[in-house]
């Protein structure tokens, strides 16, 4: 079970969003399990072709994930996963 934290910006669309323990062996599996708790959130994080949205960043154990295309980075128990929005202007 990874410990998942979210940017507060997502709370506007998912008001009950909170730091949580989520199962999953990869980033993709973890996100799919988050979707079960917060239906619809997956579409906010990944594009319809499966890649991470351009202006979304996910940090695993303090590092940006390497695989933004298929989200296949391995997640281990007690890892920390941070879901942030990237900085962008406008």
């Amino acid at each position: 079970m990874a410990n998942v934290k979210f940017t507060s910006a997502l709370k506007r669309f998912f008001p009950t969003l909170a730091e949580t323990e989520i199962a999953g062996d990869t980033v993709k599996e973890t996100l799919c399990n988050i979707e079960k708790t917060y239906p619809g959130i997956l579409n906010y994080l990944i594009e319809d072709n499966g890649r991470l949205r351009k202006h979304v960043n996910i940090f695993l154990k303090g590092e940006l994930i390497k695989d933004r295309e298929t989200l296949n980075d391995a997640v281990n128990s007690r890892d920390e996963l941070l879901i942030f929005q990237a900085l962008s202007g406008g």
């Binding site: 910006a9 997502l10 669309f13 579409n43 906010y44 594009e47 949205r53 202006h55 979304v56 962008s88």
Partner: peptide, 8 residues
């Protein structure tokens, strides 16, 4: 057309 979260 969210900058971060895509089209809704």
């Amino acid at each position: 057309s969210h900058r971060h979260w895509g089209e809704k």
